[in-house]
Amino acid sequence: MSAHSHVDGQLPHEPEKATLEGRNKVLGFWLFLGGETVLFGTLFAAYLALRNQVGDGNPTSQELFDLGLVAVATFILLTSSLTSVFAIQAMHKNQVKPMLIWLAVTVLLGLGFLGLEIYEFVHYVHAGHGFTTSAFSSSFYTLVGFHGAHVAFGVVWITILIFQVLRKGLNVVTAPKVYVAGMYWHFIDVVWVFIFTVVYLMGKVG
């Protein structure tokens, strides 16, 4: 089972781990995710320290947050995590078309999530909650906005991957890229679990 025989021939089981390059890509991505954990952890720590630092008349988290909207956003992102699992499962069965469809569904759900977040932020700004309004608002927008930027990046990334697989097919070179993008998407959902818990739900409790 040499790596070369897979490029044009039949795809091996778990094609993302068939070559040394693929295995290194996955390992390197895990180290990257460790670094991302620290990045988001820093922003969470800053938010936790500043979340009650609100000036007179500025909106607090209890007044501001709309849990209905957050619940819908959470549902969309959780569902997109499931559809990206289906994409990887289709990849493992060497079913290129279902894989691409599931990836496209994931991208669409990601866009839906971004739309909701943009609507939410616009709504907050109109409610007098700008980026520089208070220490709470700055740390809130930095943390939640950074997560939104990650979702936007993931949407662009997976869209480009869809086009690459359409052009070059699914092989031991493209499979690790799809696998790693799937890991990234799950990580984004993991971060969101903490955002809806720590920022929105705990912010509503007070």
Binding site: W30, L33, G34, T37, V38, F44, A45, L48
Partner: peptide
């Protein structure tokens, strides 16, 4: 190991911030 290292740093920072 990679993720747990990240979590350890995060835990320290959150405790510090709180």
């Amino acid at each position: 190991v990679g993720i747990l290292t990240g979590v350890f740093v995060v835990f320290t920072m959150v405790v510090m911030a709180e």
